[in-house]
């Protein structure tokens, strides 16, 4: 039992590795912010493309979402980070992670938005446009708020997935939370930093997961 506690819950080692883990957490948060924000914006445009009257835009949007949901994000990441240099394109690890996960993540957000936009009655568009609102104004003030509200649990679920996804960045040695925890483990020959990192993820994601359940129950009611 002592060995267990010493190996996994060693307070002294946790304390020592804390600064490294905090640095990693900061990197993870930056990654998440970039991927989530850009994903929310990009996904909306992809979803709008999907619903466009122009056929080529619809096709482009469908090809995009199909491709980037089917490709494993890790494959994308390694291709962008380690494959593109062969074409003379060198990208920083941070940018590689953001681009790879953005492609993946915006596709999922796009599908969620699409479901949301479809859920808003056509009469809402017609009423708004009949009062002289432009299509963009109709979208922003009338349709999007209702669409987002209707799919809020799915948007949040997808956001949870993004946070988890960023731990894959450790594969290309980007010093985010998991990577730094692994470093601390190899320096201290002790698994406690990994446990601490897991706790960080838990603290980060548990409220979000709760929120998803809350909204799901409210929408079902």
């Amino acid at each position: 039992m002592d060995i267990f506690i010493d190996q996994f819950f060693n307070i002294e080692i946790m304390r020592k590795s804390l600064p490294l883990l905090i640095t990693g957490l900061w990197m993870t948060l930056q990654l998440c912010s970039a991927v989530i924000l850009l994903g929310l914006i990009g996904g909306l445009f992809v979803a709008l493309g999907n619903m466009s009257e122009r056929r080529w835009l619809r096709w482009l949007s469908i090809a995009y979402t199909d491709l980037f949901r089917a490709l494993p994000p890790l494959v994308l990441l390694i291709f962008i980070y380690a494959g593109l240099p062969f074409a003379g394109i060198n990208i920083s690890p941070f940018a590689a992670v953001v681009i790879a996960f953005l492609l993946n993540n915006s596709s999922y957000y796009a599908e969620v938005y699409r479901a949301g936009l479809i859920s808003v009655a056509k009469g809402q568009w017609e009423a708004a446009q009949s009062t002289g609102l432009s299509p963009a104004q109709t979208l922003i003030y009338v349709v999007l708020p209702q669409a987002v509200r209707n799919v809020l649990p799915d948007l949040l679920s997808n956001t949870v997935e993004v946070v988890k996804l960023t731990s894959l960045a450790s594969v290309i040695s980007l010093s985010e939370l998991l990577y730094n925890a692994g470093m601390a483990r190899s320096v201290t020959y002790n698994a406690s930093p990994l446990v601490l990192a897991a706790l960080f993820y838990l603290v980060l994601l548990w409220p979000l997961v709760r929120l998803v359940s809350h909204f799901q129950r409210r929408l079902a009611a």
Binding site: A121, G123, Q124, E126, A127, A128, Q129, S130, T131, G132, L133, S134, V142, P145, Q146, R149
Partner: peptide, 20 residues
Amino acid sequence: LDRMRLQIGMVFQGFHLYPH
């Protein structure tokens, strides 16, 4: 067209008020 629609009010069978 948007400007001219301001001059044409339309009332629908289903009201279509903005619920939010």
